[in-house]
Simulated assay, not measured.
Amino acid sequence: MKLYDVIVAGATGMVGRKMIQVLEERKFPVGKLFPMASSHSVGKRVVFNGKEWTVQELNEENIKNSHAKIALFSAGASVSRHFAPICAKYDITVIDNSSAWRMDPSIPLVVPEVNREKIFSGSKIIANPNCSTIQMVVVLKPLHDKYKIKRVVVSTYQSVTGAGQKGHDQLMKEWNEEEIQEMKFPHQISFNAIPHIDEFLDNGYTKEEMKMINETKKIMGDNSIQVSPTCVRIPTIGGHCESVNIEFEKPFELSDVREILSKAPGVVVQDKPLEKIYPMPIWAHDKDEAFVGRIRRDETVKNGLNLWIVSDNIRKGAATNAVQIAEEFIKGK
C-alpha cells in the first residue's frame, strides 16, 4: 500500500486533534505525520498509531522539509491564507477547514457525498465547508436530485464546540460555577440560547448565516436554491441540530423520501417518534453520519417537507469530512 506523509496544521486545537484521531480510526495510509502549530505549541506531543509525534512550528522551512503530499489545515483563516499557498508551492495538496478559501471561485468546496468530482479540479487547495452547511447538504442532495429544491428555511441549534476549546471551556466553567477569565460568547451560554454566531452584517444576518446561504449554493451547484437561515448557539456538546423546512418543485410521497434518505451515503434515518426515536446530539456524538428524523409534510405549503438533522460538528462537520476528502483524493477519479 502506498503511504502518504501528512501535515496536520493546527494539530493541538480541538479540530486538529480530532483530525489525527480520525486519520487513525479510518486507517488512512499515513507514512510520516507532521503535526504543526504556532510557536506556543512547539515541543508538545500528539499520539498517532501508538507513537508520539512532536509538534513543529508551522513555517515555510518545516513545510518544505516535510516532503508531505497532503496537509489538513485547521488553524484559522488568516493562517490558511498565508500558508496554504506555500504548501501548494511545494506540491502539497491542502484540505482547509477555515473560511479562507470557501467562496473563492477557483477553489473547490467539497462534501464527498455531494460533489466528489470537484476534488479533481486541479486545485492544490480544497476547502472544507462550514460545519452547519455540511450536515445539511448531505441530506438535501439526494432529495434535490429527485424533487428539485426551491427554498430552504433552516434554524440551527449549534453546539458550543463549534466555537472551539474556549467555547467548550466557557460552558464547563459556568456549569461548575468557576471563574471565567475570557468569555468566548457575548452572553452566558449555560441555560441559555444565543441567536448570534459570528459577526452581524449590514443585512441583519450573521456571517455564519451567510455561509449557509452561499456555501449551500456552491456545493449543490445550483444558485437557484433559496436559503433562509437563523443560527443559534445552545449549551450542548455532542453536535449541531437543524430544523429544516424544504419546498420542492415536484410532489413527493413521505415513504419515498424515507427510502431515498435511507439509501443516501452518509445519512442515517432515525424516524420513529412514537417510540421516542429521533436524532439527538447525545446519539450523534463521536459518529460520522448525518442523522435525520421528524420527517413530515409541511401542510401549509405545496410540496413542503420538514426534517430534523443532527451531526457531530467536530467530526462530519470538520475533521471527518476533511479526511474523507483526502481518502477520495488518493483514490483518484
Rank of each mutant, 00 (worst) to 15 (best):
D5Y: 01
D5N: 15
V8C: 02
A9I: 03
G13E: 05
V15K: 04
P29G: 13
A37N: 14
K44V: 04
K44Q: 15
E57F: 05
E57A: 10
S66D: 04
A75K: 02
R81Y: 04
H82C: 07
K89R: 15
V94N: 06
D96P: 11
S99H: 06
W101T: 03
R116P: 00
R116F: 01
E117L: 05
S121W: 04
G122C: 10
N128H: 04
N130K: 06
M136Q: 15
K141C: 03
K141H: 13
P142L: 08
K150H: 09
V154D: 01
Y157Q: 14
Y157W: 14
S159I: 08
S159A: 15
G164S: 07
G164P: 09
D169M: 13
D169K: 12
M172E: 12
W175C: 11
W175A: 07
W175G: 10
E179D: 10
P186Q: 02
D198Q: 13
F200Y: 13
N203G: 06
K207E: 13
V227D: 02
P229D: 00
C231W: 00
R233K: 12
S243V: 15
E247S: 03
F248Y: 04
D256N: 09
E259F: 03
I260D: 07
V268H: 03
D271V: 08
P281G: 12
H285D: 14
R294G: 01
E299R: 10
V301E: 12
I314K: 02
A319G: 01
